[in-house]
Amino acid sequence: MTALELGQKLKAQFGDLLSEPAEFRGEITLRLTDAERSTPVCAWAKKELGFDYLVDISSVDNYGTDPRWLVVYELYGYAHRCHLRLKTGVSEEKSELPTVTTVWRTANWHEREIYDMMGIRFRGHPDLRRILMWEGYPYFPLRKDFPLAGKASEMPDVAFTHSAPMDGGPFVTVSGGKDAIAREPRVRIPETDSIATNARLERRRDVRAAHAPDHGPPHGTPV
C-alpha cells in the first residue's frame, strides 16, 4: 500500500475534516481543518492504518497570517513503511490544541518542546513544562517576533540572559533581504546604512571607532 492510498483512506474516514492528499517531492501531506480533532484522527491512523511510529512534531510560526501556528505531525508505519504528514493550523488567540501523548508516548517531549519554543499549549498533556529553556523563562524564542540576538531576562537565583554580542555585528545576514548587500562588512558605509543597522552600530563602539573619519573610509570604499 502506498502513502497516497493510506492518505485517501484517512480522508475517506474523516471526510471534510481533512483536505485532499497533496504530494510534494514524493511525500503525502493532509491538512486537518479542525485542530481540536487531532487526537481521534491520529488515534485512528495508528490503530487502523498502522502508523505506529510518530517521527516528529514540528511547529511553524506563520507570523502575520491567520491561523498563525502550524503544527506538523510526521507519521510512519513500520509494517507498510510509508510516511504521511498531517498538519493543522492553530490560531494565535487560542494557541492550544489537544495532546497526542495518549496515542504515541514519544509525543510527550516533542509537545513539551513546541510549548517551550513556540508557546503552543497541548491540552491533556501529562507534564507540560519547558524542556530546553529553564522553568520561568519569559519568552518563546522560536516565534518570529523574537529577535535572533535574544532578549534580556532575569530570574533572580535561577538564570539570566543578555542579548547576544552579535546583535549589530556584521555577520547576521538575512539572505535575500533588501539590506543583504549593505550589511556585507567590506562595503559597509555606516552613514548610508539603514536606520536600524545604524542604531545597532551605535552600541558597538569598536565598529564606530573603526569607521571614524581619521581612519579614512574602510577598504577604499568611496564615501
Partner: peptide, 19 residues
C-alpha cells in the same frame, strides 16, 4: 537524524526543525 524544512522559496528556510 531528520530535517523538516518549511520553505517559502529563496535561500533561507522559513522554518527548519531538527529531529
Amino acid at each position: 537524524l531528520g530535517f523538516y524544512i518549511n520553505s517559502r522559496g529563496g535561500g533561507t528556510p522559513h522554518r527548519l526543525k531538527i529531529r
